[in-house]
């Protein structure tokens, strides 16, 4: 179960984090021309769009969307084989956002890939919009509606099993939050994926180390996390979840459909890229007032300028 709480973030001291990201431009969020952007630029655009969606009627899950931004951008820009003009293309890769509360990041990724017009992101959370706080099934590019934690990996097991059975070439990817791993159903699915040798299934853990009430290790410890997955029969790749090259390398090293499944544990920073929110548990769900949005965006852009 997910119990999102909404808080209005107050001013937090900026925190500096060295990253390997490339320079990001300051394009307007509504600019849907994506062809010439680098992946790093797309990630920066995604962060701006997440902040923009946080200004919606009831805010959004800012922290966990920002922590997933780099890995989602690499997935959607460089890894997933998709056809936006044919969302049900049988040989597509299947992506399941098990941490459905990061929907804002997913919408930005789908928009960048051409599944949604970028202008539609402005409708996030508004009455009658297709863009809910957790993804709905009617949205092109969404394989399953998610939001209740602990469902996605089983869906991925069934999907990968069916892909293998029907001989289709697509792979299944499931992105989970680290707090989500406290759901027992995750481990039912983990056990079965390894037992069935579903190499076509890849799990990704956004290891941002914060759940709503604080540090995962203080609330319900997950460590040794890599050891847990290994003991369940998975191959573990631990990477810096904000290092695009490291993410690329991990996604390039995946097994075939009868291999040992891989879990990529992506070490991330909750709120990554926005000094106001980085490593702040209160960034979990935030409604950004105009003033807060202005400061958050300025912090994000200043950070990216310094790294360019």
């Amino acid at each position: 179960m997910s119990t999102p709480t909404t808080t209005t973030a107050t001013d937090h001291a900026a925190m500096e984090h060295a990253t390997t990201e490339h320079a990001a431009t300051e394009r307007a969020s509504s600019d849907s021309a994506t062809a010439e952007r680098t992946t790093a630029e797309q990630a920066q655009l995604m962060r701006e769009q997440i902040l923009q969606m946080g200004t919606g009627p009831d805010g959004t899950h800012v922290g966990g969307s920002l922590s997933s931004a780099d890995l989602l951008t690499v997935l959607y820009q460089e890894v997933l084989r998709l056809r936006p003009e044919e969302p049900d293309w049988p040989d597509r890769d299947r992506f399941i956002l098990s941490k459905g509360h990061a929907s804002a990041a997913l919408y930005a990724a789908l928009s960048a890939r051409g599944f949604l017009p970028a202008e539609e992101l402005a409708e996030y959370g508004t009455s009658g919009s297709r863009l809910a706080g957790h993804p709905l099934r009617r949205l092109p590019g969404v394989e399953f509606p998610t939001g209740s934690l602990g469902h996605g990996l089983s869906l991925g097991v069934g999907t990968a099993l069916a892909l293998r059975r029907t001989g289709r070439s697509g792979r299944a990817y499931v992105l989970m939050g680290d707090g989500e791993l406290q759901e027992g159903s995750v481990w039912e699915a983990a056990m079965s994926a390894a037992h069935l040798r579903l190499g076509g299934l890849t799990a990704i853990v956004d290891r941002n180390r914060l759940q709503i009430t604080g540090d995962t290790e203080e609330r319900m410890g997950l460590e040794p996390l890599a050891g847990k997955w290994r003991s369940f029969g998975w191959q573990v790749l631990t990477v810096d979840g904000h290092d695009l090259d490291a993410l690329r390398a991990a996604f390039a090293a995946l097994p075939g459909p009868t291999g040992q499944p891989v879990v990529i544990i992506a070490d991330t920073v909750k709120g990554k890229g926005v000094p106001l929110f980085e490593n702040k548990k209160k960034s979990h769900s935030v409604k950004l007032s105009p003033n807060l949005h202005r400061r958050a965006l300025a912090g994000l852009r200043a950070r990216s300028r310094r790294q360019s």
């Binding site: 097991v157 999907t159 069916a162 299944a172 039912e188 699915a189 079965s192």
Partner: peptide
Amino acid sequence: PDQYVNVGIAEANLMGVSAGLAAEGL
């Protein structure tokens, strides 16, 4: 055997796996 899978004594997994299979046309 090719049309059978035992997902273990794990009913939540049963339903999620079945949903995944059905979504793929099985």
